[in-house]
Structures are given as C-alpha cells and as structure tokens.
C-alpha cells in the first residue's frame, strides 16, 4: 500500500456531523507520511472543542483497518490553523446542495438562501446545532437554514 492510496482512503471518510462532506473536502487531512512500514496521518481539528474531532479519528482508524492497514498513527497538528478557507470548492457546492449555506468570507452572513437563492436573509442565532454553524432565515421563502460560518 502506498502513501497516495492511504491518503485517498483517509480523505474519502465522511465528516461525522455533515456526512455530505468528506474529510478531504473539509480540508482537515494535512498529510500522510510513511516511516518504517508505518503510516502517520496528520489531522487538524476544526473547532477546538468540537466533539466530532474524536469521532473523526475513530472513523479514520476504522476505514484504515477495513482496508487491512494496521500500522498507523494519527497525529494532531494545529498549524497552520484550520479555517473555512480550507474547505474545497466542491465541498462548498455540496454544502449548498445539502441545504447548508457555505461560508461567505468577508461578509457578515451567507450570500443567499440555499433553498430559493434569495439574497434577502437574516440571522436567527449566532450559534447552531454544531460549533461550525449559525442559524439564518430566508425572508422570501421563510425557511430557516444552517449557515456554515466563516472562521
């Protein structure tokens, strides 16, 4: 098994809270290295206290074990700090399709409602169901939706 194969296995693991995104889309896999027959997977946390961080490590382990890779370690790296800019373009498109407005850098909130695309939106709550999301509402279709806030 080579580094690239291991990397693609790890990057295709779904995010435990937003399963439409893979860890590759999310941009939290910072590298895979091979040392003396052992793989070292570098993972960076999204939010510091996010409970998904532990689950992500467990899911990486499971994916590797089911591909018969047994010698590996998962290393937490902090730098460079993860921000929503690490989410891939395809990841942002997947979020929008899933009904979560993707991060909109430089602005105070989402670009538009993920359902009807209206740009008339307002904030309901600065925090949401997971540390990375806020709750917004569309003024036209009146649907509330999650916004993946910028970090």
């Amino acid at each position: 098994m080579d580094v690239l194969t291991v990397k693609s296995i790890v990057e295709s693991v779904p995010d435990p809270e937003i399963p439409v995104l893979t860890l590759g889309d999310l941009g939290v896999i910072r590298g895979v290295h091979e040392r003396d027959d052992e793989f070292e997977i570098h993972v960076t946390p999204t939010y510091s206290g996010c409970p998904a961080t532990r689950v992500i490590n467990e899911m990486i382990s499971e994916a590797l074990l089911s591909a018969h890779i047994e010698k590996f370690t998962i290393k937490k790296v902090l730098s460079p700090v993860w921000s929503t800019q690490w989410i891939s373009e395809s990841g942002k498109a997947k979020l929008e399709e899933y009904g979560i407005a993707p991060p909109n850098p430089g602005a105070k909130g989402p670009k538009s409602c993920p359902q009807c695309k209206s740009i008339s939106v307002s904030e309901i709550s600065a925090f949401g169901s997971t540390p990375c999301q806020a709750i917004w509402r569309c003024q036209d279709c009146l649907e509330p939706f999650n916004y993946f806030k910028c970090l």
Binding site: Y47, S48, G49, S125, P131
Partner: peptide, 21 residues
C-alpha cells in the same frame, strides 16, 4: 432564550477545547 442557551453552550465548548490544549 433558546438562542442564548445554544450560544452559551457553544462558547463553553470552545473554551473547553482551549483548556484541553
């Protein structure tokens, strides 16, 4: 309010993450 409830819990979660580090 519900919004403040969620906010306080989320801020605590971040702070707990910082404390752990």
């Amino acid at each position: 309010t519900l919004e403040e409830d969620i906010a306080l819990a989320n801020v605590s979660l971040d702070l707990m993450g910082h404390a752990q580090m």
